[in-house]
Design a protein around this nucleic acid. Sequence first.
DNA 1: GTGAAAGCGCTAACAC
DNA 2: GTGTTAGCGCTTTCAC
Lengths: 375, 375
Amino acid sequence: MARAVRRSAGSPAPRSEDVARVAGVSRKTVSRVLNNEPYVSDAVRQRVLEAAEELGYRLNNAARALASGRTRSIGVVALGTAGYGTAMLLVGIEKAVRDAGYALRMVSTLDGEPDDIARAVDSLLEQGVDGIIVSEPIVEGEVPVRVDVPVLFLGAPPAFVSARTLTVGVGAYELARAATDHLLNLGHTTVHHLAGPGRWYASKDRVEGWRAALSARGAHEPPVIEGDWLPTSGYAAGRELAADSSVTAVFVAGDDMAVGMIHALREAGRSVPEDISVVGFDGNPVFAYVVPALTTVRQPFDAAAREGIRLLVHAIEEPETGLPPAGDPPVELVVRGSTAPPPARKAPIRGRRMASGSSGSAHAPPAGGGPPTTD
Amino acid sequence: MARAVRRSAGSPAPRSEDVARVAGVSRKTVSRVLNNEPYVSDAVRQRVLEAAEELGYRLNNAARALASGRTRSIGVVALGTAGYGTAMLLVGIEKAVRDAGYALRMVSTLDGEPDDIARAVDSLLEQGVDGIIVSEPIVEGEVPVRVDVPVLFLGAPPAFVSARTLTVGVGAYELARAATDHLLNLGHTTVHHLAGPGRWYASKDRVEGWRAALSARGAHEPPVIEGDWLPTSGYAAGRELAADSSVTAVFVAGDDMAVGMIHALREAGRSVPEDISVVGFDGNPVFAYVVPALTTVRQPFDAAAREGIRLLVHAIEEPETGLPPAGDPPVELVVRGSTAPPPARKAPIRGRRMASGSSGSAHAPPAGGGPPTTD
DNA sequence: GTGAAAGCGCTAACAC
DNA sequence: GTGTTAGCGCTTTCAC
């Protein structure tokens, strides 16, 4: 398909009327065929398709949208921070949107303040979209905008005054909990936490998962340290933590920060994982190749995107129906070399245990020796 | 702005006619004001703006596009590979597009085969775009599609039968050359190269830059090894190279692969940078925190995106005018710990030298000791 | 400076 | 199964 390079550059683009004339049918019949509507005989359908191909006809979406009131496109408000996670999510969203038969319009916003999000949503609405997906917003406070289309919040509670908002989690709470449990299961008496910026929902979920794991064991809860997702802030936090000899385990809210932290820890003479264990968050495969290979939890980007779009499309196409139930994505803990039992006492006999529902890949302890666990 | 949350959810969206009535003018005048056209008195302009605000009026872009023939949006064909580089470029493109007053439509394609690109371009054209930007396509062969709008190829030669194609490089050739020169300047007699997949233009440019640096010195050119951008392929190539005792320097076409390679090298008992130096490509800041910190070249993502969009928008808005000249983005070499003089003989006295036009940050040799060079 | 009329290319509702 | 008639909400052209 798309091989018909017929008409010369100068002539105006063919319209459905031209196709109708060539096929010897009415405009409406062309429309029926192009929209896969029933009640068209196969013979006519065939003729129309051939005529369209021959003319190099391409549907005019602006006209279609104007006439039908539907744009067949979905808008995404993405955060400008170009991390591994954000990128993976965006790609997942694009694919899910395309598979659902919609086009993607994208607006990114650096800051994610309510006003920024409002501006982004507004511009999407003006372009024309049938639904909006707001990806991991940093919100506090209500977003001041009027919306008539369904809006999906991915990884955050809704922040709109709208009858048609949806939410899909990205499993951050469960993942944070699994990461912390992993450390506790190794025998650490408590786990420190380097979080993302406090105003991000993505941070909050992880803090809560960590906190829940701690309190379920009655473990002492150390103060949260706050980073900014960048490796530099992990490095800074690592210097701080290295000075506290009671620290034996840290759950870090992002792989990049975790790598920065490990660097600072080792530089300060604390070895990882022998003295201090570190677990990251994201699942970037490259960190299987650093020393020590990073133990982390893998975010289910694709699953979250697919589920979110499924809900959103449902809300667009069948607003009346109740939403079908959603299955939770699996929690995946990837155990590599940056975690071990604490130095003082041995790990409990039962050894390593995966978090509930996990399918993590176990891996013989620390650095060097054999191809790393990459998957 | 966007604070006007007036009309109740049920009522139909206001049209320009409603605004005209409230402001006491004609529809055309409303259109003039909204499009910033001249010949409207300030008083009237003000009245119209107020009426629009009061009604919570939002322009209908489909209608505008249908009437004017322009959509005010630009489509991007992105590669589905969610690497650091791709993500950075995409974010840069989005911002540049928005700053130019256009909206972004995105289609990603996993494979980048000519047919995939054709399909992607076709779907963009159907949605309606005033211009298209194809980001680092993997092309060989001509893309079979008819296009009427300007198309910009970012980081690749044009692959279209179209009168209006543009190209903007991403500086890969120069960067590859600078990376290789850095190694040669350190005293290595030759430099091996781990490339990306042979069919990608992004790979070819880098191979050529490396080759040029080598031949400018009359250095022997070892066979190119081919990876797939993923760290695993760097690891595999590293195992191969480790077996060859003559290898002292490698230029790797991506940071992730470089990290994989270093891991394999060290695992095989070859130390980096003492035995073998490795330079990456991309400039992901997190690799300042691995051991050894990765020497790399930084891609000018934002500059390339801005320049590309500038050209594209110019081609859209003033098709007749000759294109304004483009300034080349600076070549940035980031010297960190993974490169050093070769083991056998000492480096030339003049020491390290930056590549032409570079602004790389020098950094005292290998691992551990002081915060890494991150910028 | 401002307005009236026409029409962009498609789909909706209904007739046949 | 298929065709006819009306718009969708804006910009254009040209008159005033």
